[in-house]
Amino acid sequence: MINERITPQAGKAASKQIDKQIGDDFITVEGLGKTFSENRMFGSSGSAVRAVDGASFTVRRGETLALVGESGCGKSTLGRLLLRLIEASEGEVTVDGTKLMELSTGDMRNMRAKMQMIFQDPYGSLSPRRSISQIISEPLEVFGMVQSSRQRRERVAELLSQVGLSPTFMDRYPRQFSGGQRQRIGIARAISVNPQFIVADEPVSALDVSVQAQIVNLMQDLQQSRGFSYLFIAHDLSVVRHIADRVAVMYLGRIVEIGPKARIYNAPSHPYTQALLSAVPEPDPETRRARIILKGDVPNPANVPKGCSFHTRCPIAQDICRVERPKLAETEQEHLAACHFAKPMPIPVA
C-alpha cells in the first residue's frame, strides 16, 4: 500500500466527449403566463403580481434548455407551470402533441410519467420518514411499473447504481446522506419512470463546489444515455455554460433573450444579459472582466415599469424604451432578444 498511487481520473473524465442527439420539438410553450393575486378574500382588488408573462419557447428532444435569471424573475414559476404544479393563468403547453391545459387531473397525472422534476433543496425534497427505496420506487408504483416487491428492490438497486450510490443504502433514511448524495437520490427518483423531459430547478445551487461538478456530470451522463430533455433552471451562469444547449434569460417574468449557448455567451444581445455575464466574478485574479454595474435593484414585480421593464436599470435606455415594450425579435437565426437596441456584443475581458 505504501507509495501506491492512484491515477487521477481527471484526464479521462474531462476528455469524455458529449455526443448528443437533438431531435424535433418535444415541448412547445405558447404565451404562458401566471398572475398571482393577493387578498383573494376581498375580491381581486389586491395587488396582482405577473410572475410569468407571455413565455413562448420550445424544448427539443434530447436538448438542455437553461432558464437563467435573478431571484424573483419567475424562472421557477415557469418551470412549475410547464408541469402544471402551478396552474397557468393563460397560454398553452403542448407536449408531444398533447395540449396539457386541456387535460383532466387524472390525464395530467398520467402525463407525469413523461415529465419529472429534480428539486433545488436536497434536504427538503426527500420525505424524512421514508426509506430511500420507498422514495425512489414511489413513481414506479404510481405508474404500475413494478409488480412485486422483489422487482421493486431490483429496480431501485439498478437506479441507485446508475446515480453512483451503493444499492446497499436502499433501506436507509435521507438524514444519513450528504447534500450531494440526496440530490443523487432525487435524480434516481426522477429518472425511475424513464421520463422524456425533466425540469431541474436549481439542482446544484445548494451544493458545495466540488459536489456541484459531480452532479452536473451525472445529469449530463444520464441525458446522454437516456436521451431525455432538460429544462435547467439556474442563476449561476457558469454552471449553465457547461450543461446547456440553448439558454433563455428572464427578467421580471419575461424572457428577454433566448438563443444557442454559444451565441448567448459569446455575443449576448440584450443589455441585461450583457450585464449579467459581466457581473460574474472570474475565479482568476489576473483576468478581470470589464464589469457593467447596473444601477439600483430589480423593481418590485407587483409594479413592473411601463415600456421595457428593464429601462430603469438599462445603461442604453432611450425615450422609446419607457413607452413601448420591445418584442422578442430575431437578431440572428434562432437567437432572439427583446430590446429596441439589441446588438450582439461580446463581453470584453480587461
Binding site: 407525469r112 422534476m117 414511489e138 405508474f143 432525487g186
Partner: peptide, 25 residues
Amino acid sequence: EPYVEAAVAVGLRTPTIIIRHIIPN
C-alpha cells in the same frame, strides 16, 4: 415542504399524498 411538491410531481394521488407524506410528518 418540497417533498410534498415532489410527491405531486411524481404523479401521486391526493389521498396517497395525505396519508404518506402529510400525516406521518
